[in-house]
Design a binder for these strands. Structure first.
Lengths: 132, 132, 132, 132
DNA sequence: GTGGTCTAGACCACA
DNA sequence: GTGGTCTAGACCACA
């Protein structure tokens, strides 16, 4: 995995594990890769991988059982919360990207419409008509 | 300036100059920092800074006059086009960030509403209702 | 290779590559010398050779495949266009050489006839008469 | 003046003087710049300028009178001959430029027509019609 | 191996 | 002063 050297690697790996859970790559209650496997897969130091699981456990996002391994939380609400957090970060980033661009109100409305068409799984447009 | 090592520095500097122009830090026709000054300010090699201006000139975004310096284009339409390009990239990034999160349609709609409240300088939503 | 110091080396090398393709030394789709080989052959710095290929790629005259090498375009029309460009430049240079010489119309006609005899592989002149 | 370092400078200066005479910058019998002035004007060593006049005198193209200076030949035929020589060199260069380009006969004919239109002071085209 | 980018430092033309 | 080009040498991603 490629890391941004300006941010702690363990944080970036935490995000990666969180995204995998949110995307459904890992299901609630699933056993996660061992510390050694995760370290090898992502090319990080095993100490870093261990810290990732330690922090995620503090968040209540995973559970580590001595001798058995680490498991994704079985509580869907925690995963849902992570999903919302990631979505919130995406929103914040987008707003920051777009804020100082000096866009007109009309242009901003167009951007919103474009986003809606790209992410909302519906065939209803904003003015109530139906796309063909 | 901090650079993402996974992308060419000259591209990142090109974006930086473009953003400055789009934000209005530089006005149409303004003289830009000299190659050497830009290099010193951003902590890059003068060769890299020179390449930035060379590429921006090929894009028609700036004009370089030998012995005099580099100048932002005097054509507002070119700056407008850059603005739209940056906005488009922000949209693309947001959609990518959010796409595989497994959000419900309802949640997606909420995100859009949050963005709208944060960026649109109007109290009229796209479906004609009025935000409180 | 001998270079005219009053013009950028990279431009002269671009012309050299172009001429080779136009003359048929390289065929459409052929792999060109690697950046390092070209640099060594012509006695220029590898950076300069790399710039040559970069510019030729932007012109659409060659295609570069990362890790594999650079290849002459497979489109004969592009090579044809380069041929015409080189021919046009030869014309321009000749006209410039001859323009201020104060030649009489008759002498100019003779020069044209000499050129015709030297380059046109036919015994029919443009006015339909036949050279002896 | 800019010199091609791959050829003797005195030859290039000889050509320059010859061209000036052929273009009419100097008239038959005119006094030419002194060796010192010529050297200063062209940025060459006075010895080089002296050699230029020496060689041109051997050609019979100029005459040097002790204590008076150097003068362009008063014989128009000699200037005419130089004109023809320069024209011949332009022809040779053009033919060389165009020879290996792989042009079709038709294209070669077109080039000739272009040259004719550019250098022949007549309003009659090759097929006998008159340009408007 | 391939091309792409970058730093370092130099020299040039132009104004 | 300004930008443009070049050499030298390094490191990177990709295959």
């Amino acid at each position: 995995m490629q890391f941004d050297p300006s941010r702690p690697i363990y944080l970036q790996v935490m995000e990666e594990i969180t995204k995998r859970a949110v995307r459904g790559d890992y299901r609630p209650g699933d056993r996660l890769p061992s510390v050694r496997d995760l370290a090898a897969d992502l090319g990080v130091n095993p100490n870093t991988a261990a810290r990732v699981y330690l922090e995620l456990e503090r968040e209540g996002f995973i559970e580590t059982r001595r001798g058995q391994g680490s498991f994704l939380t079985g509580d869907p609400a925690r995963i849902e919360a992570a999903r919302d957090r990631l979505a919130g970060e995406a929103v914040r980033r987008f707003v920051e990207d777009v804020r100082d661009l000096g866009l007109t109100d009309g242009r901003r409305g167009q951007l919103l419409d474009r986003i809606r068409r790209m992410i909302v799984d519906t065939n209803t447009t904003t003015n109530g008509t139906v796309d063909i």
